[in-house]
């Protein structure tokens, strides 16, 4: 099993954390993991991305140009990464944020109401967890239990009172796919 994913969107949407939580979860399950954030001029332009690779075997290149799965939380990310998905791969996007939806026929596309769900939970900042829930429901890269455990590592202790909310957001996100 190897999952070559990229998470992309605006800075502040929790893009880098999504990948990091997935990487932690992979490590908890004993898999090889690699997380490579964008840190260059594109960050200054407002968009961010993190390549996240989870595998049963040693990971070769940390930087890749074709993906099994893409999570896109803004229009520029859909435009940039839609054509970089391998045939049969998956594109998950936040339908509340995208005006021009993806059109490829040879991949699976999920437009999920991420922002709407986060607003329903009264905290727009859990959008990333909603979408990560959808991602795991679609890809089954790791067990949800590993994600909950990973959250404890990624969220600083002073935010641990938000763990139940984040878990709820994740579950809602899974339900958007199932």
């Amino acid at each position: 099993m190897t999952e070559e994913a990229i998470f992309a969107g605006f800075g502040g949407q929790g893009i880098l954390s999504m990948g990091m939580i997935l990487a932690y979860a992979g490590m908890i399950e004993g898999k090889e993991v690699c997380w490579m954030p964008s840190y260059g001029p594109e960050m200054r332009g407002g968009t961010a991305n993190a390549i996240t690779i989870i595998s049963d075997k040693l990971i070769s290149s940390p930087i890749i140009s074709r993906f099994d799965s893409v999570v896109a939380l803004n229009q520029p990310s859909v435009d940039k990464f839609e054509h970089k998905i391998k045939e049969g791969g998956v594109l998950i996007y936040d339908a509340s944020n995208i005006l021009k939806p993806p059109t490829r026929k040879d991949i699976q596309i999920y437009g999920v109401q991420g922002s709407e769900t986060a607003i329903k939970l009264k905290n727009v900042r859990v959008l990333n967890m909603v979408i990560l829930g959808s991602f795991i429901a679609a890809r089954k890269t790791v067990d949800p239990k590993a994600i909950y455990k990973a959250l404890e590592s990624v969220l600083p202790e002073r935010y641990h009172h938000l763990l139940p909310l984040n878990q709820k957001a994740f579950e809602e996100g899974m339900a958007l796919i199932n």
């Binding site: 490590m27 090889e32 993991v33 997380w35 954030p37 840190y39």
Partner: peptide, 10 residues
């Protein structure tokens, strides 16, 4: 290099 510095691994 920049990637070795910025990326996370086990």
């Amino acid at each position: 290099d920049g990637a070795m510095g910025q990326m996370m691994e086990k």
